[in-house]
């Protein structure tokens, strides 16, 4: 699995993502600047890390979604390539239309910086194969706009087609519709989620709860 990590101005979680990828994949990810127009040849997985791209101006992820590299990312996704968006990366891929819905301001208005518990809704995907279905794991959150929303028909479709990847298993602190923390695209090759599995991939970080995400991808 060859990964490319996208870098937009204001992104600040790319080093965490590099560590997680390096450890599980056993090879270095490419770093791709937002002004580039092509992904490196042989890219299997595009990762959009967390942060505050373009200062969250207008709406979180709205500016980054219009960056030159995103045209290549959309083409990659249309070819069936893998895409992982975490936190601001999730916001960017919803703004870009790669996943449905939007992330609103947290229901309680506070920026949430704490651990949460996530339930794995399905284990038969390239992103989640190293977990058991129904497993609950710990993941750090760090966001002000993580309140997942979509119209009722879209939410029903996500549930009906089994495209919810993770749900908040303890408290639904940001107010997300149906406790949704992460969703898949219909072909199960695009995953977006708000919490940060990449921040728990080494005992030195306080746990390895998030490592199965990267180990799953490495085994794909």
């Amino acid at each position: 699995m060859q990964a490319a990590i996208l870098l937009f101005p204001g992104i600040n979680r790319e080093r965490d993502m590099i560590l997680a990828v390096r450890q599980s994949f056993g090879r270095e990810p490419a770093i791709v600047w937002h002004k580039d127009t092509e992904l490196p040849a042989g890219t299997d997985l595009v990762i959009l890390p967390g942060g505050f791209s373009f200062g969250d101006y207008l709406r979180c992820g709205a500016m980054a979604a219009q960056s030159p590299i995103m045209r290549a990312v959309k083409a990659h996704a249309e070819r069936g390539g893998y895409v992982l968006g975490v936190c601001n990366g999730f916001q960017i891929i919803t703004e870009a239309g790669l996943l449905p819905g939007a992330l609103l301001r947290n229901a309680g208005l506070r920026f949430l910086s704490m651990d949460t518990m996530l339930k794995v809704e399905r284990a038969d995907t390239v992103f989640t194969s190293k977990w058991d279905k129904g497993a609950v794991f710990r993941a750090p959150m760090a966001h002000g706009d993580g309140n997942y929303t979509a119209d009722e028909a879209t939410l029903d479709r996500l549930e009906g087609e089994n495209l919810v990847a993770f749900r908040y298993a303890d408290q639904n602190r940001n107010g997300s519709a149906r406790r949704i923390a992460g969703i898949f695209s219909p072909n199960l090759r695009v995953l977006g989620l708000m919490p940060h599995p990449e921040n728990l991939v080494d005992p030195l970080m306080g746990g390895i709860d998030g490592k199965p995400l990267f180990d799953s991808l490495a085994a794909a």
Binding site: L104, R105, N106, A107, G108, L109, N147, T149, G175
Partner: peptide, 14 residues
């Protein structure tokens, strides 16, 4: 504006 029916926590706080 946020659509009708979409939670507006900032409006609520104001």
């Amino acid at each position: 504006m946020l659509k009708n029916g979409v939670l507006d926590p900032q409006g609520k706080a104001i």
